[in-house]
Nucleic acid binder design. Structure first.
Lengths: 117, 117
DNA sequence: ATCCATAGTGACAAAAACGTCAGTATTGTC
DNA sequence: GACAATACTGACGTTTTTGTCACTATGGAT
């Protein structure tokens, strides 16, 4: 049962999932928003100092398009925009958590492995 | 605490994790090997008909380099090579499972969402 | 002699992702 | 008038990733 989404075909939910969370900073952004939300752009920037602003905005736009992140604009000057996880976005918590956990295990594994000589 | 791996710097386990499981076919390959293993190259090809052989081999090589997949070569003709998950590779099961589950939820969400007009 | 199967490799092209730089708009403060 | 803060956008180039094509090796079967 093929899924059509944004002019592409996906053959499993897994493939679809990877296409929407697969960007360089997306898991990081979602992780930030799971810790604390809402967050403003400049707050996300502070939490992810290795990402540049342009990239963060692009990834946020895509997450918004995919309905994973909600964007709330306040009509004030200077502009105020808040980002939040949607309901389906919040459901990514097990994905993010399991990746973090495995990553920590893998780091430990690499360190143990490196000591073997 | 910065992690150095393959000439790059990673600032969290999560970043490291994403760098090793982030290839186009890696989660798919790991998923196959979680279902059934060992598997030979041509068996993986049959299970992932949308990937071409060249890509599968490249991704398998990287997974092998990262010690996630084990490669066993039998000195026979025609060649026989079996692929398996390593111990740390097997530990990716929660990651793969949570991605699959969320992907299915997301697919349902998209379908429900599309019906709203 | 030719073909088959398996499991590859090398070179290259195409596409996607990523990063950098400069610039926009608004209102308020100095 | 200059500058600051916020949240952007556009254009562009680079890098990375992915895909395609042709090619290799071996021994057995026909």
């Amino acid at each position: 049962m093929v899924i059509h989404y944004k002019d592409k075909e996906y053959f499993t939910g897994k493939d679809l999932a990877l296409s929407v969370i697969g960007g360089r900073w997306k898991i990081a952004i979602i992780w930030c928003l799971l810790q604390q939300s809402p967050l403003r752009l400049n707050e996300i920037e502070k939490k992810l100092p290795h990402a540049n602003q342009r990239m963060l905005i692009r990834q946020l736009r895509e997450l918004e398009e995919d309905k994973i992140v909600l964007r709330r604009v306040y009509p004030v000057v200077p502009p105020k925009v808040e980002y939040d996880l949607s309901e389906i976005g919040l459901q990514l918590e097990p994905v993010v958590t399991s990746i973090c956990n495995w990553g920590d295990d893998f780091r430990d594994f690499l360190q143990t492995d490196a000591k073997k000589d």
